[in-house]
Structure formats: structure tokens, C-alpha cells
Design a protein around this nucleic acid. Structure first.
Lengths: 199, 199
DNA sequence: CACCTATCCAGTCATTGACAAGATTCTTGT
DNA sequence: ACAAGAATCTTGTCAATGACTGGATAGGTG
């Protein structure tokens, strides 16, 4: 056969795991009732091939969620690098990035913050989640490097709660916008963040 | 047989639907991988009996979520009745009640705000969800009956986002509390609400 | 009493997740 | 180079599930 123009069907896929995560994220995002066998079909491997990389379907979800955290972390880090010296401005931009990520990948976003669905807690998942949290924490700390623990806790909890809550309202289509109002979701978020920081 | 002391096994259950919702909520809350047939077993009826009350398993979820919204609405209404004339105080108490509900029924709470899991949107679900939102909206309006639409939108979105976000952090065990901090989740929420209202 | 409809049961089918055993390829030590 | 073993993938199988069908039973209405 002509094995140079068309790669002959190999017995081994070669790099299946990352592809499974990629396809898995796509399936989850597209809400095509995700299943182990459906994933195998999409990757054009046998129905039990994925089991060699993920013990259960829960591990696939965990890997996809970890991938989501990785993407969120990258977004936050990029925003942080792009923003100037003003820590308040950096915080605003982080809120925008958080909101953007949720709007871009709502289903993965819901999965990432749903311990019921994420019953499998892999080391990778915990690590990526902590990394994302770390970006937020250092941005909060930068608002006032000398603040007390109580102040820090109050700030990070309320800021994160507002950002996360606004993201949820956003992707669930439950942000209230009256006919006469011209403001948008990011504006509501920024206004709230400013009030919390100024406190 | 003695049909007076022990009710003989009836062919018809008599009042199956509400019992299915009750058992369903329990199963969902207990995370015992919820299934149509498991529900039937728990209710001691045939494996297909629930289908006569709920076309698909998604309809069971919708009914359970609607039940959750009903409970949340009752909590909010009770708090509203119990609080005095100060609308700010009423808002604080509503936040507490919201937080309480999430902590009491975390799995149902996650379900209620997860459009991915709640793929079936019944009329009952939309109605109960709107009712719960209504309680929050009127409480926000009471903060200043003369406020503009922009002000109202800004307030309700940020307040709800903060309350909801804090509830999520709470049930996911991600509220940050440093060793030296003595504050609790409700305190963080109240502090944030005060800042948003005062704006 | 006859009929009708709501409710419930038993049976069936394709699909699923998990497991087991065998086939193929890669890797590592010598 | 090459054999041994590990890693990867396949086929086969099993109980369990959701959805569907047709039939049995109960309550209500005339």
C-alpha cells in the first residue's frame, strides 16, 4: 500500500489521552449526552480504549475540568501581564476575563464548580484549581500589600463571590436589564467590584 | 388476611407523584446515582410506573428543582415577614436565608442553577423560579422605592451575584478563612452587601 | 351495571459502563 | 541486535439503565 501519502491505520493511536480530553471538552460543551463509548467513537478507537487512560467517566470529567482551570489560569495570567501598575485596574480586568471564560465555555465552567458532577478529585484537578485561585489571591493582595488577614479574607471572599456569581447569572441568562438600562453585565460587575474594593 | 391492621397491597399507589418528588429529592441530595428505576424501587412500584407521571428522568429533575425553588421562596417570604421596617436589614436576612438554603440542600441548589443538568424546562419550574426571583426583586425595590431602572438593575444584579456567589463558595468549601480570622461566611456576605447597598 | 380513563405492571430493546482476555506495538536491558 | 516486559488497543461479555409497548386493575360517571 501507499503508506507515505496516507498514514496507514495504526494499531496504536500514539497520543490518545490529550485527544480524548480535547474531544471530551467538545462533547461536554456541545451537550451531546456525554458517554464513554461516544467519546471512543468520536476518537475512532474501540469502545474500551479510553479506559486505559481514564479508569471511569468521572476521570474524564476531572481531566476536562482541569483543562478548563488551566485555560482560566492562562487567561488570568495574561490579563495580569497586560494590565498596568494600578492593582484596581488589574482586578477589573480579571473580572472581565473570568466573565469571558464563563461565557465562552459555560458548560465546562458549570462543571468546574460543581462538586456533585466532579465526584472524582484527581491530583491534577486540585493542582490546576489551586493555581487559578492563586492568581486571584495575589491580585487581591496587590490591592494593599499591607492589609491584615481579616481584610484580605473579607476582600477575596466578597470579590470572588461577586465575580463568580455575576458569571453564573450571565451564563444562565438571568442578568436583569430593564428596557431603559444601557449598562451591560461587565459594567454591573465593575461597579460592584469598585464598591467592594473602596470599602 | 387482616386488611384492617395492615393496608393490603393496593394496585394503585394513590398519590405517587408527590412521593416520587420527595424520594427523588432525597436520592439527589444523597448522591445515590439517581435513576428512573432506582426511584421506582425506592417507591416500591414497578420499574416503569414513574413514567406515567414524568415522561423522562429530566422531568423528575425539573420537578425536584421546582420543589427546591418553592422551598427557597418560602424561606425568603418568611424572613421578609419576620424582619422589621428597615429594608437593609430585610436584605441582610434574605442573604442569610439564601446561604442557609444552599448549605442545607447543596445538591438541589446546584441543580437549580445548572441549565446543563436541567435540560427540561417545565412550566412549573419556570413559575417557581420566577416566584423566588420576585421576592428578591421586591426586597431590592424596597431599599429605595424611587430609584431609577439603572440603579435598580445595578443593585439587583450585584446583590444577587454576591449572595449567589458566596453561597457557591460556601457549599464548595472554598471560602477563604485565614487562621487569624474570626469572621464567618455570613459575616463576609453581610459586609459585602452593606458595601454594595451603600454605594 | 357498563363504560372510560387514569394508573400501574410485565416484557422487550438498544445502549451504556465496567470488566476480562487476547492482540499489537513500544521500550528497556543486555 | 534482540528478547522480555510494559503499554496500548481490540474484541467479547455482563448487568443495569431509559424508553417503549401492550395488558391488567382501579376509580369515576352515566
Amino acid at each position: 500500500m501507499d503508506s507515505t501519502t496516507k498514514p496507514t491505520q495504526r494499531y496504536h493511536h500514539g497520543d490518545l489521552r490529550p485527544e480524548l480530553v480535547r474531544i471530551g471538552r467538545q462533547m461536554i460543551e456541545d451537550e451531546v449526552s456525554p458517554s464513554f463509548r461516544g467519546l471512543a467513537r468520536a476518537a475512532k478507537v474501540s469502545h474500551s480504549a479510553p479506559q486505559h487512560h481514564f479508569p471511569t467517566w468521572g476521570h474524564v470529567l476531572a481531566a476536562c475540568a482541569a483543562d478548563g482551570y488551566r485555560e482560566l489560569s492562562a487567561d488570568l495570567e495574561q490579563v495580569r501581564a497586560a494590565s498596568g501598575a494600578d492593582p484596581r485596574d488589574a482586578m477589573f480586568r480579571m473580572g472581565d476575563a473570568y466573565l469571558d471564560f464563563a461565557g465562552r465555555s459555560p458548560v465546562i465552567f458549570r462543571l468546574m464548580f460543581n462538586k456533585s458532577a466532579l465526584d472524582v478529585r484527581t491530583e491534577e484537578l486540585e493542582r490546576e484549581a489551586s493555581a487559578a485561585y492563586g492568581h486571584l489571591a495575589s491580585a487581591v493582595r496587590a490591592l494593599d500589600p499591607a492589609m491584615t488577614d481579616v481584610k484580605f479574607d473579607t476582600l477575596i471572599n466578597s470579590l470572588w463571590a461577586l465575580i463568580h456569581g455575576m458569571s453564573v447569572l450571565h451564563i444562565e441568562g438571568q442578568v436583569c436589564i430593564s428596557p431603559t438600562t444601557t449598562l451591560t453585565t461587565p459594567a454591573f460587575l465593575r461597579s460592584g467590584l469598585a464598591a467592594l474594593i473602596a470599602r
